[in-house]
């Protein structure tokens, strides 16, 4: 019998096929664990998959919202989101990088107006999904290291 590395969960979200090594970053982006929450979170890193290694994150008693999922897509573009209710997968979809990133990534240009005290959100147009290229809608610059500028 195949040994289960991570126990199945009753209710919550399983994020599968995360780029190996990025699981902790995914948790960080999701702001997990929340200090007030007692729900169990399991993390598996470098799990052998069918073709290559992957990371898995299981979050009990929490169903991820799509705005949160968009953020994950920036660092783990192949991740799948499985919503679990009563041990059944009731919803399964791949993360998808939206056409526009609003309030997700910070502009890396220090002289961009979005990095001042103005009441404005960071907005990027996704120029290309693979490789990921985004363009600030204000200064029109393309930040090189998007991953390090996720809000």
């Amino acid at each position: 019998m195949k040994e289960l590395r991570v126990q199945p969960i009753m209710n919550g979200t399983v994020i599968d096929h995360i780029t190996p090594g990025k699981a902790l970053k995914v948790l960080h982006i999701l702001g997990l664990p929340k200090p007030e929450s007692t729900s169990t979170i399991s993390v598996a890193i470098n799990v052998p998959g069918k073709t290559c290694k992957k990371d898995i994150v299981k979050i009990e008693d929490r169903e991820l919202e799509s705005s949160e999922v968009d953020r994950i897509a920036l660092i783990a573009p192949n991740a799948t989101i499985n919503i679990i209710r009563n041990y059944d997968v009731v919803e399964k979809h791949r993360v998808n990088i939206p056409e526009e990133l609003i309030g997700i990534v910070r502009c890396s240009n220090p002289t961009c107006v979005t990095n001042s005290t103005e009441p404005v959100q960071h907005r990027f147009t996704v120029v290309s999904k693979n490789p990921l290229r985004v363009k600030c809608q204000y200064c029109l610059r393309e930040p090189a290291d998007i991953e390090n500028h996720i809000l």
């Binding site: 961009c112 404005v120 809608q137 204000y138 200064c139």
Partner: peptide, 28 residues
Amino acid sequence: TLADTIRMADAYSDVIAMRHPLMGSARL
């Protein structure tokens, strides 16, 4: 903020010509 200065100018004028040191300020 630039946003507040613009709101004021918007109330007082028909068109705004501006120059500002920050990139993207005109879009804002």
